[in-house]
């Protein structure tokens, strides 16, 4: 950051001062993040029985159960399917909205930015409750609106279905997508659109050939955030999905607090963590490789 000190290699004094300041936080994180995570990984290899409780041995029983029992495959498949659909919806609607938002004038821009990204900070329980109220049964408000507008003929079942979960998740995650795209749009040179117009491009061509390719890294990083948060979401699947439509997070919760089979719950959680890390790191690498020419 400072040009004065970045010219030469770090001195011993500088390193000592930096580490001293960061030490309390480092100790906190080692003690309360690194060790507990390691303990959770260990836990997933422990044995458990209805009457004997947790037995600290090293066995692959939990992992074998997850791999062999199709119930878990289906549950993980549902988790990632719902997350992927929610991501798709946020991209399809969030990208144009961010573009429209960016073209708004003065105070309107600030107001609608607050309205659209503000919900991010509003209690997820309250927001999901809102969806539960809107969905509520066949004569919920959502169905009434959709049928009046002629979009559907017969009521759609939202509560306790994947459809409802996807809609509510897309709503919860939308601010992340709009923010990511909006940030990318801010970096665009506003004259570039004018340049394309002056060369004879129509506004759709400008959007498709000029704007979209440039904000694509932003869209993709927004998609990664939305996907990983959706795949590990808890409140929405628990309230909208109900007790039978389980995803990874709600299943782990059940194993821990209802069945009390902690080792199995830990294995589900660790698998979710590993899968997400692989997906996030993998797609980040792909994106960087794809766009390195453009954003060196």
């Amino acid at each position: 950051m400072s040009a004065v000190i970045s010219a030469d290699p770090p001195s011993a004094g500088e390193a000592r001062a930096g580490l001293t300041l960061a030490l309390p936080a480092l100790m906190l994180f080692t003690g309360v993040v690194v060790i507990p995570l390691a303990m959770t990984v260990m836990l997933s290899f422990h044995d458990w029985g209805q009457y004997k409780g947790i037995e600290p041995v090293f066995i692959l029983k939990n992992w074998r159960e997850i791999v062999e029992d199709p119930y878990y495959a289906e549950m993980f498949w549902r988790t990632f399917r719902v997350a992927a659909l929610a991501t798709l919806i946020t991209a399809v609607f969030g990208v144009p909205e961010a573009y429209i938002l960016n073209r708004m004038q003065g105070p309107w821009k600030g107001l609608f930015l607050l309205v659209i990204i503000g919900p991010l900070l509003i209690s997820v329980v309250a927001r999901t409750l809102g969806w539960a109220l809107l969905f509520g049964g066949n004569n919920g408000l959502a169905n009434k609106l959709l049928m009046t507008s002629g979009l559907i003929d017969s009521p759609v079942k939202f509560m306790f279905t994947e459809t409802g979960m996807v809609v509510a998740l897309a709503h919860a995650m939308m601010p992340f997508m709009v923010l990511a795209v909006w940030t990318a749009l801010q970096r665009l040179d506003p004259q570039i659109e004018n340049a394309a117009l002056s060369l004879g491009a129509g506004s759709l061509t400008v959007m498709r050939r000029i704007v979209l390719p440039q904000i694509m890294p932003g869209v993709l990083s927004g998609a990664i955030i939305v996907f990983s948060l959706s795949a590990s979401a808890f409140a929405t699947p628990a309230i909208i999905g109900g007790r039978r439509l389980k995803v990874a997070a709600t299943l782990a919760y059940d194993e821990f607090l209802n069945t009390l089979n902690w080792p199995l719950g830990a294995a589900v959680a660790v698998l979710l963590l590993i899968a997400l890390i692989l997906i996030v790191v993998g797609s980040n690498t792909l994106i960087e490789r794809r766009y390195q020419e453009m954003f060196r």
Binding site: D189, Q191, I192, N194, A195, A196, S198, I210, P213, Q214, M294, F295
Partner: peptide
């Protein structure tokens, strides 16, 4: 038109 920022398409 030649713009002050050149407005080249970076991609």
């Amino acid at each position: 038109i030649v713009f002050q920022s050149y407005a080249l398409f970076p991609h």
